[in-house]
């Protein structure tokens, strides 16, 4: 502070010049900052905002890729809601996937994180090994592998057979179970929430847990009364991320069903149907409307989550 006032005092005689100098330096700094930001800004404007606005416009048009878009007002949205059973199929599939796979995956990730947090030997190795599926999960190779795993002569059926459980195979081609295999696939990619949970667990002060122990709380009580409440901000963070991810799930369904959403539309994810509308039926206007529908739903669900978080997320202070 002394330095600052000193400088201001010294500025007395040559005041305006120094102020100009400071202002000029400030402007230069701002310019330099924008220069460094430029790649990002250009990217956002050119590759994100621009195309988003374009797709907003296209969503009000009939655009078949060949020929110019023609304005149709709300017709695409109207068709979505009132005249397209496959749209609702895709909404149902996606809703089921989000509602089931996110809690399952988070519970699994938390369980593993709690286990690893007990100071296991070779923690770094385990952490890496468990994290690996997160990197592979949405890859083409794993989706192909998944198809094999759950086929009638695949590993899952074989293994179940050796321990005496008779499973009928072909889950991927069974409309009742195809989506379940994708749920399992998503749960398997629990690595990234697990790593975040692990970091969160390590932030919990030992003395609180020690105190609870001294007060006679058992392991279960300690977890639910002390650890979990302190962890809720991290749970919330993971929940938001995974929900948004689940709404946008595409690759596994695309590969496992060879782009059809089959069998019998049982894995017709919203994004997959969007892709089919846009890049197979070349109905870009409709696909754009669907994209905006998804955008609004994800926004609304996330906002809802933030509102609800007041009631269960504890920030401690």
């Amino acid at each position: 502070m002394a330095v600052v006032t000193g400088a201001a005092g010294a500025a007395g005689p040559a005041g305006p010049a120094a102020r100009d100098l400071a202002a000029a330096r400030g402007r230069r700094r701002t310019r330099v900052a924008y220069l460094f930001l430029a790649p990002w800004i250009l990217g956002v404007l050119g590759l994100t905002l621009g195309p988003m606005l374009a797709s907003l416009y296209l969503s009000f048009t009939d655009y078949r890729l060949s020929g110019a878009p023609s304005w149709v007002g709300l017709a695409n949205y109207q068709r979505m809601f009132t005249d397209d059973p496959r749209f609702w199929t895709s909404v149902g599939v996606t809703a089921r996937y989000v509602v089931l796979s996110v809690p399952l995956q988070l519970a699994f990730a938390l369980a593993i994180a709690v286990f690893l947090d007990r100071g296991v030997r070779g923690l770094a190795l385990y952490r890496s090994v468990y994290y690996l599926p997160s990197l592979l999960g949405s890859s083409v190779a794993v989706a192909v592998l998944w198809r094999r795993l759950f086929s009638s002569d695949g590993l899952v059926v074989d293994l179940a057979g050796t321990v005496g459980i008779q499973l009928s195979g072909g889950w991927i081609s069974d409309p009742e179970r195809a989506l379940d295999t994708l749920l399992v696939l998503n749960v398997w990619t629990f690595g990234s929430p697990m790593v975040i949970f692990l970091a969160g667990l390590r932030q919990i002060p030992d003395e609180l847990i020690e105190a609870a122990k001294v007060d006679g709380a058992g392991a279960v009580q300690r977890f639910f009364r002390v650890v979990f409440p302190l962890l809720t901000p991290v749970v919330f963070f993971n929940l938001i991320l995974q929900m948004i991810g689940a709404f946008q799930a595409f690759t596994p369904a695309y590969i496992v069903s060879a782009g059809t959403g089959g069998p019998a539309d049982s894995t017709l994810f919203y994004t997959l149907y969007l892709f089919q509308s846009g890049f197979q039926a070349f109905d870009m206007g409709y696909a754009s409307a669907m994209a905006w529908g998804l955008f609004i739903v994800i926004g609304a669900v996330t906002a809802l989550n933030f509102a609800a978080s007041r009631y269960w997320v504890h920030y401690g202070d």
Binding site: L47, T48, L49, G50, P51, M52, A54, S55, L56, L58, L65, L241, I244, Q248, T271, L274, G278, F279, M284, A287, S288, A291, W292, L294, F295, I298, G299, T302
Partner: peptide, 18 residues
């Protein structure tokens, strides 16, 4: 993330016109 994600969906579509 969610802006970017939604943007990606939009971009995918508008990208075709590019």
């Amino acid at each position: 993330t969610f802006l970017r994600a939604a943007g990606a969906v939009g971009a995918g579509l508008a990208g075709s016109s590019l």
